[in-house]
């Protein structure tokens, strides 16, 4: 059984703030560098940011940190697969 401590609330709040901050950063990056020349790099950066956000939600909000490791590894594998595929497809389009 998972029991929480007072400090867990603080941790959740930090995670939430980080998530919001990362969202803003990725939106600003996308808007600022939308000039056709940096698309691949910026795309990979925002993908990485998205991956970090997703992993934070999975590990912290969904408490996979405390869950049996097979479940954490399964979701990590999912995230890795999605991000890797998207990153490769995104980078690949540059050369067409």
């Amino acid at each position: 059984m998972i029991t929480n401590r007072r400090s867990d609330t603080g941790r959740l709040t930090s995670v939430w703030l980080a998530l919001c901050g990362l969202t803003v950063v990725s939106a600003v990056a996308a808007a600022a560098f939308d000039d056709g020349r940096h698309n691949v790099t910026v795309g990979l950066v925002v993908l990485l940011i998205g991956a970090c956000k997703a992993r934070l939600v999975l590990q912290e909000f969904m408490e996979l940190r405390h869950a049996p490791r097979w479940l954490g590894r399964l979701t990590d594998a999912w995230l890795l697969g999605v991000v890797a595929f998207v990153a490769v497809m995104h980078a690949y389009q540059r050369h067409r």
Partner: peptide
């Protein structure tokens, strides 16, 4: 219920990246 709601959130994080910010 929390687990489900967080999943909806995770999916949206990816959708936001794919549809809005990936250029």
């Amino acid at each position: 219920a929390g687990t489900y709601w967080h999943m909806v959130d995770v999916v949206w994080i990816v959708l936001f990246a794919l549809l809005y910010v990936l250029r």
